[in-house]
Computed example of a mutant assay.
Amino acid sequence: MSDAARLLRLLSLLQTPREWPGSELAARLEVTPRTVRRDVDRLRDLGYPVEASMGALGGYRLGAGAAMPPLLLDDEEAVAIAVGLRTAARQPVAGIAEASLRALAKLQQVLPPRLARRVASLTSATAPAAPSDASLVDPGQLTVVAGAVAARERVRFAYVANENVVSKRHVEPVQLVALGRRWYLLAFDVERDDWRIFRLDRVSSALATGARFAPRVPPGGDATEFVTRKMYDSAPTFRASATLRLPVELARARLADFAGDLTALDDGSCSWHSVEDTIDYLAFRLTLLGCDFAVHGPDELVEHLRGLGERISRSVGEAQPPGGPALTPSTG
């Protein structure tokens, strides 16, 4: 093994989050402990923050430095990160899509052809999620809250409630929950002496106070289950039944993970029984399909779509071009 290859191999080992005794590194690299010490010094000269601890349980580890060092990935790690970046690009966090795509472009540029083919196969076999209609979460707020959850540290922030009323909150954050198309925070509100659920896209000016709190057990013992139950309790949910004027495979691709039960009726249409969701979102997904459809139920969805259609018709009818009369929908 050349010196350069050995140095890269040492760096790859040190990027595993553990302490590496010098004797174990020497055995892995098939060199003497003295050579290991010399190679560690060379990595430090290149800017890698290699830390060393003494004693029977001591060894070498790669610490956090002032800049992000190049990462060495094995085949499975490279594929996992590439697929993960594609998924992250569709999440409702402001700026995450652009950052994910930049990172993915850098990774794809250096992927060996055999790995690039694997990534392409995985992504082509996976139907993309539909664009999210959720408000974007500020990544800075998300980072502050996530750090406070991990450190069990109280947080103060401004919060916009459903009625657009802004209030100041002082909470003990217990867990972040990604549910459907939104991020939620389950926390114990100190001033209200009760559990509360906050939408992260409505949080601003989040500040960790430095005050620690004792661990709290979420109601029922499971934060995700509690948030899910509360969200569904607060908004009635339904299952749509409709005929879609789309080939069944095209409908399945456009609906992705919201497909529910699809059955082909003929080459150009299919029946759809949706998964459970709110009336607003069922209507949104139907109109997003870009095809004609006939809704058979529930009645609440039919009425919602009828009202939506009337509002759109009025909006089009009232639109006026500059210097011209009001536009009216064409009936030809």
Rank of each mutant, 00 (worst) to 15 (best):
A94F: 15
S124R: 14
G260Q: 12
L111D: 13
Q15L: 15
V171T: 08
N164Q: 11
A283E: 09
A88S: 14
Q91N: 00
R154C: 03
G180S: 09
F238R: 10
A326S: 06
L122T: 13
L262A: 06
R102D: 15
M1Y: 11
Q320F: 08
A251V: 14
F226V: 00
P325E: 07
D45S: 07
V40R: 04
R212D: 04
T331L: 07
A326C: 04
A80I: 05
R44S: 09
A206Y: 11
A223Q: 07
A148N: 02
R152F: 09
F213T: 03
E98G: 14
A116D: 15
F226M: 06
S100P: 14
V190K: 01
P321K: 14
S313A: 14
V36Q: 09
V137H: 12
A294T: 05
Q15K: 04
S121H: 08
A88L: 15
V190L: 08
L72N: 00
A251M: 08
G140E: 00
G309F: 01
A206W: 03
D222I: 07
C291K: 00
A82T: 12
E153D: 10
A158G: 09
R212A: 05
D267I: 07
L305W: 06
V302M: 00
A283H: 11
M68I: 08
L57S: 09
S53F: 01
T143H: 13
G180W: 05
A256M: 12
P33C: 10
A148K: 00
P17R: 11
A26E: 03
I279E: 02
R314M: 05
T243N: 02
L25N: 09
P112D: 14
E163W: 05
M54I: 13
G65V: 02
L176D: 11
A66S: 13
A67H: 13
L250S: 09
A80M: 13
V31P: 03
G65H: 04
L136Q: 09
R118I: 05
G147M: 01
A66E: 12
E51N: 07
T278A: 05
G22E: 11
A4T: 11
T16W: 13
R229D: 14
G58C: 03
H296I: 04
T278E: 13
E276M: 12
M1H: 05
R28A: 15
T123G: 12
I197D: 02
P131S: 13
G309K: 03
R216D: 04
P219F: 07
S274D: 05
A148H: 07
D75L: 07
S204M: 01
A242Q: 08
G221C: 02
A256D: 13
P33H: 08
F238W: 15
L46A: 08
T263M: 03
L176S: 10
A105L: 15
K168C: 02
V31S: 03
K230H: 09
Y232G: 04
V40Y: 02
L308R: 10
F188T: 02
